[in-house]
């Protein structure tokens, strides 16, 4: 049986863990709400731009905003978006393992976003071309350095985490070109009017505006996948912290029970000693 002072000290340590997990859970929940707000507030802006892009497109082919005269590398680019630090559950591990199932060094290059994923790739002995930090801010995410890399390759796939509900997150892969073409077709289907040169004045020219918008659509798509990933990571972190908090609370209850048991044990022991002393005393007197 532990000493009562040991149980009290364990209880105090566990109380700190309960407090910490509660704080982390609260922080994750707050960040989750902030990113959700960002996603919602930007949605209308991005939808309007999708409408314009889908109406302006001069051909059905997407050229990654690089023009037709530049030939890209005959390799596919994999972009994996992971968390910057730990505390995000096992979702990064799932994402990296899934991506590596498709990965062939001779056919693909990897760009990793987030320190957690970079660490896992290094541990798996997989080389990556570039590493970018996951943006700390949830708005004004600068994806230009990423787009400069995307333009070098013939095609790009993005592996990222997606938010379904607070308790359910999934991992997803999108082929950038197809995602943009599909979104554009959807936007055009809902607003079936093509912008024609004779109805509009374009400055500098329709081709340059369409090329610029291709770049913008890549920015939007990548920004949205990063935001979606962050949302899923915060939800996953919230879930992990909730689990840790529940476990810490369970352990706290167990320690409280142990404290009571130990206290009762020592009280019983003292009582037994007193009774034994009384019995011996009475026996001596008799």
């Amino acid at each position: 049986m532990k000493r009562l002072s040991e149980v009290v000290s364990e209880q105090q340590a566990m109380q700190s863990v309960v407090g910490l997990t509660d704080i982390f859970e609260g922080l994750a929940s707050m960040r989750l709400a902030q990113v959700k707000d960002q996603v919602l507030s930007s949605q209308h802006f991005f939808n309007e731009l999708w409408d314009i892009y889908s109406q302006v497109r001069t051909s059905n082919q997407f050229h990654y905003g690089r023009g037709l005269d530049k030939s890209p590398l005959e390799k596919e680019l994999y972009i994996a978006i992971t968390a910057e630090g730990g505390f995000s559950g096992d979702i990064d591990q799932k994402l990296i393992s899934w991506m590596l199932k498709f990965y062939d060094k001779s056919k693909q290059d990897i760009i990793i976003i987030g320190h957690h994923g970079a660490l896992q790739l290094t541990q798996a002995g997989v080389e990556f071309k570039r590493y970018f930090r996951l943006p700390a801010h949830d708005n004004n995410i600068n994806v230009e350095p990423l787009i400069a890399q995307v333009k070098l390759y013939s095609s790009t796939s993005v592996f990222y985490q997606t938010y379904i509900t607070l308790m359910v997150q999934d991992i997803k892969r999108i082929e950038l070109k197809r995602a943009i073409e599909d979104a554009s077709k959807q936007a055009l289907a809902s607003n079936n009017t093509r912008i024609k040169g004779q109805d509009y004045i374009f400055e500098p020219s329709p081709e340059i505006v369409a090329g610029h918008l291709e770049n913008t659509m890549m920015q939007i798509t990548l920004t949205q996948t990063i935001l979606d990933s962050k949302l899923a990571q915060y939800a996953s972190r919230f879930r992990s912290m909730r689990r840790a908090s529940d476990k810490a609370n369970d352990m706290m209850h167990e320690l409280t029970r142990e404290y009571s048991r130990t206290k009762r044990f020592y009280a019983d022991e003292r009582l037994k000693e007193v009774i034994n002393g009384l019995v011996k005393h009475e026996a001596r007197q008799a």
Partner: peptide, 19 residues
């Protein structure tokens, strides 16, 4: 201001897209 230079837009302007 666009690539051509400064410009003004008044009510009833023709359909226009510019960077």
């Amino acid at each position: 201001v666009n690539a051509t230079g400064p410009f003004d837009v008044l009510p009833g302007h023709h359909n226009f897209i510019t960077l």
